[in-house]
Nucleic acid binder design. Structure first.
Length: 905
DNA sequence: ATCCTGGAAGCATCA
DNA sequence: GATGATGCTTCCAGG
């Protein structure tokens, strides 16, 4: 039906606006990391990075945070800070004041009147009100205005130049990028880039996100987000790019698609060709994308607002950044890309938009097909580094998207890259029916490939348990990553709203920080249960995305995603409780889906070091020749031990594989050791890493069992949490930690999250909730403000906050980056894992599970499992009382020690 | 006519 | 540097 807006009440929290900067992408690591990562990814996707990160982690964390945000920062120097600023407000620091941003209310008072929170939490507040009224917050508000509902507002607002900060350095550009050169256009790219931003400032957002799709589906969309604010500037790329997509919005896209046919070009020539033309210049319309990203803000919306935003300062900044449009374009872009681009559009020039930015500004484009513009410009341009710079013109985004009414972003809402718990107190957001493990995503140039389906037929189902109010809420859905890093919006995939007679679920699109978010009503009359039959997955060209300035991830072989669901539950105290759950990983590549082995479930998560037990793996593409390799990774990602497990060929089926757990290299471990294993069908055909935990020999097997139990659950569980069976393990620990959700408030700290991180994050999993509110946000937000600094602090804070949520915190966003905190823990035990696991979180909830938790560090385990940890080492235990943080730290230390010791010993 | 899909071509990149 | 294996993106065609 009507997708249009559903009613989301203003209240809904939709908007996550939080924009936080943190996108993560940037994150940290950026430089190094990125490099690494990529590499890693390619190979395994490994998590190496993670590992690495882990190392960093801590620090990182902060860093990360920042990074996330802006990544830009990374490259860009100063920037970072800036952004933060924006956010900041939102975030913690801001909290109070600034925070407002986040909290909408806060400043204004929250709905409740409660003061804002200081902490980080985010409040949700109603968007509307908040936003607008409040406007206090920055621009966001403004934006909102523009937008219909956008939530964002508040928080974001700011615009602050931060954006500038935002910039990403050209350097940043996706390094990786290279890959795809081809694409030229792709608006898409634009979109993404931003992620980070999101938080950043909502305010910003406008810009950024704006682009986003708006159109897409509905106009409504609104893009809320605050999107990108952060970066706006900084991110130019993002924005720009982002925008592009966004901007593009569906329409654009559509247009483009229409073009798709474009193809005329013929395949590859691709797009370029085809598109180029269009692109060229401007097209602004779509183009926006390129345009400066920042600017971009979306079209209309932004436009309108933009003005506001734009403060002159901003504008100026932008301009500064930008250069010529043409130039800009070019700059950033990787050579390869450019080539194409160039070729295509030479002309392109990117006109771009001049800085105009504000949307409005440029008008021109509109005419053109969006797509074209954007990228082409970019490309053409040359490369220039700037590309992001963006300044581009403004895009125009022609269309303005409509804003959707609904969309709101609430300012306060947590950024999309924040890790949130799946349950808190009486509330629990669960994926009752998991999506199929494979879903071929469609390119912009293709028609829709339909909605994601459930493996048993039908569609995924999500339900919020524990909510007894009569007011409907809004369920948000976006495409998240499935690697071992923290969960964050996927740069190369966007959710695509499916409509038609076959779709029974009302939905509407919104864009947050370059990330398309599908908003689906959760109605009390339906028991707060929603069938997700309206969500498809759109693949953005790697080249487009990689060109973004801030983007550090590479698209090649990065084809796994997770559906991430969020719901923001208004609390009596005026705050909003944000819960999030991620689905099991979904392989979106045609080829990968046909060839890569995929482990969906494993019958056992842990077993004594003696091994010998048969473990049944369920999944896809298993061959008689499939090998199962167990690996122990050092904190730095290096393989300390590798062992091929025996498989039973006779029992091998395409969907199941029986493997004998090999004995661990060290039969004398005193505490559980987490390792990973993967299924290999050939040189480059290996599954993601799955987690497995070796238990001390003396440990009664019994223990194991528990684990199993959990596991099953997990697995089975698919349901709810989406955890994957495997993953869980990792999380478990986390889970454990979390005590209760309820608290929420605080954000937790990073630490936990971290773990998650390690794990993967399952962010979704994240167990606990946290309140988004402030705390959490904080992080994200932080970025805004100070960019890094804050972030870090956050990180620090996090812990605090965390308390409950722990899980959440992390996020930092940066995808890349690992979360700071997490890392540590991880390190101890396992290396990173791969993505899938992540999900798991769900299970987490209970601390109990500890056992399960593979990863968990010793600590966790300990508690949980006493058995396991027999050894002295136990040390960790320390004080349960201690803060988790503290514990975490301690644990890490211990682990490190142990690792050095134990293992070998 | 459109939406979905599955399959595969063509080209780029990786090993 | 050459070559085959892989991966990405675009087309095509059928339901």
């Amino acid at each position: 039906m009507p997708s249009t807006s559903f009613p989301v009440p203003s209240k809904f929290p939709l908007g996550p606006p939080a924009a936080v900067c943190g996108s993560g992408e940037t994150l940290g690591p950026t430089p190094p990391t990125s490099g690494t990562m990529k590499a890693a990814e390619e190979e395994h996707y490994s998590y190496t990075s993670s590992s690495l990160s882990s190392a960093l982690p801590l620090p990182t964390a902060h860093t990360s945070l920042p990074a996330p945000c802006h990544d830009l920062q990374t490259s860009t120097p100063g920037i970072s800070a800036v952004p933060s600023a924006n956010h900041p407000s939102g975030y913690g620091g801001a909290v109070d004041s600034g925070a407002s941003g986040y909290f909408l209310s806060s400043s204004n008072a929250r709905p409740n009147g409660a003061p804002a929170l200081e902490s980080p939490r985010i409040e949700i507040t109603s968007y509307m009100g908040l936003h607008h009224g409040t406007s206090q917050f920055f621009h966001d508000v403004e934006v909102e205005d523009v937008l219909p509902s956008c939530k964002r507002s508040p928080s974001t607002a700011t615009l602050s130049l931060p954006s500038m900060e935002a910039y990403r350095d050209p350097s940043c550009l996706s390094p990786a990028s290279s890959l795809s050169s081809r694409s030229c256009n792709s608006e898409a790219s634009s979109y993404e880039s931003n992620y980070s931003y999101p938080y950043a400032s909502p305010q910003t957002s406008p810009w950024q996100s704006p682009c986003v799709s708006p159109k897409t589906t509905d106009p409504e969309e609104g893009f809320p987000r605050g999107l990108g604010a952060c970066h706006l500037l900084g991110s130019p790329r993002h924005s720009p790019s982002t925008s592009p997509r966004t901007s593009v919005t569906e329409e654009n896209w559509l247009g483009a698609r229409g073009s798709r046919p474009t193809s005329p070009c013929n395949k590859r020539k691709y797009s370029l060709n085809g598109r180029q033309p269009s692109c060229s210049p401007h097209h602004s319309p779509t183009p926006s994308p390129h345009g400066s990203p920042r600017v971009s803000v979306t079209e209309d919306t932004w436009l309108g607002n933009s003005t506001q935003y734009t403060s002159s300062a901003i504008v100026a900044a932008i301009n500064a950044l930008t250069t010529d449009s043409s130039l800009d374009l070019g700059d950033g872009i990787p050579v390869k890309s450019r080539k194409t681009a160039l070729e295509h559009s030479p002309s392109v020039a990117l006109k771009v938009e001049p800085a105009g930015e504000d949307l409005g500004t440029t008008p021109p484009t509109s005419d053109f097909p969006p797509e074209d513009f954007t990228f082409q410009h970019l490309r053409k341009g040359a490369f220039c580094e700037q590309y992001l710079s963006v300044p581009q013109p403004p895009y125009q985004w022609p269309k303005p998207k409509s804003l959707t009414p609904a969309s709101y972003m609430s300012p306060s809402l947590p950024a999309l890259d924040w890790q949130l718990p799946s349950h808190s107190g009486p509330f629990e957001l669960r994926i009752e029916v998991q999506p199929k493990s494979h879903h071929r995503a469609h390119y912009e140039t293709e028609g829709s490939r339909g909605a994601v389906k459930a493996s048993a037929g039908g569609h995924p189902i999500v339900q919020l348990h524990g909510y007894l109010e009569s007011e409907p809420l809004t369920l948000q859905l976006f495409i998240g990553t499935a690697d071992d890093r923290l969960l964050r919006p996927h740069a190369f995939y966007q959710v695509h709203r499916i409509t038609g007679k076959t779709v029974s679920t009302t939905s509407h699109e919104a864009i947050l920080s370059n990330t398309k978010v599908l908003e689906i009503p959760l109605l009390p009359e339906n028991n707060m249960r929603a069938t997700i039959d309206c969500a498809g997955i759109l693949k953005l060209r790697n080249s487009d995305i990689e060109l973004r300035k801030g983007e550090t991830d590479i698209g090649r072989k990065n084809t796994r995603v997770r559906l991430v669901f969020r719901v923001h539950v208004p609390q009596p105290n005026g705050r909003t409780l944000s819960l999030q759950v991620a689905s099991n990983p979904i392989e979106c590549s045609q080829r990968s889906a046909q060839e890569l082995p995929l482990v969906e479930k494993q019958s056992t998560d842990s077993y004594p070091v003696i091994g010998g037990k048969k473990m049944v793996l369920s999944g896809h593409n298993f061959l008689q020749d499939s090998k199962v390799i167990f690996v122990e990774k050092a904190p730095d990602g290096h393989h300390v031990w590798e062992m091929e497990a025996k498989t039973d060929r006779d029992l091998c089926k395409p969907n199941s594989l029986v493997v004998e757990i090999p004995p661990f290299r060290n039969q004398r471990i005193t505490s559980p050791v987490q390792v990973s294993f993967y299924v290999c069908n050939g040189k480059r055909k290996r599954s993601q890493y799955q987690h497995f935990t070796y238990l001390p020999a003396n440990v009664p097997i019994i223990k194991t069992e528990p684990t199993d139990d959990y596991e099953p659950a997990l697995t089975c569980g698919t349901m709810s949490q989406g955890l994957s069976p495997l993953p869980r393990p990792y999380y478990s620990p986390q889970l454990t930690m979390l005590p209760d959700p309820s608290s929420c408030l605080v954000a937790g700290f990073a630490s936990y999250p971290q773990r998650s991180t390690m794990m993967s994050t399952p962010p979704s999993s994240s167990p606990k909730l946290h309140d988004l509110s402030s705390a959490a946000y904080t992080k994200g937000i932080a970025s805004p403000g100070h960019g890094h600094l804050e972030l870090q602090p956050q990180a620090a804070e996090a812990p605090t906050i965390q308390e409950v949520p722990r899980p959440m915190a992390v996020q930092p966003g940066s995808p890349k980056q690992p979360p700071p905190v997490l890392l540590q823990p991880q390190s101890s035990a396992h290396p990173p894992t791969t993505g899938q696991q992540q999900h798991q979180s769900p299970k987490v909830r209970r601390n109990e599970s500890p056992v399960t938790g593979p990863l968990s560090l010793p600590e966790v385990r300990e508690d949980s499992n006493h058995n396991l940890a027999p050894i002295p080492v136990t040390i960790k235990r320390e004080p349960e009382e201690l803060d988790q943080l503290y514990l975490d730290d301690v644990n890490e230390i211990i682990r490190n020690d142990l690792s050095s010791t134990n293992p070998h010993s």
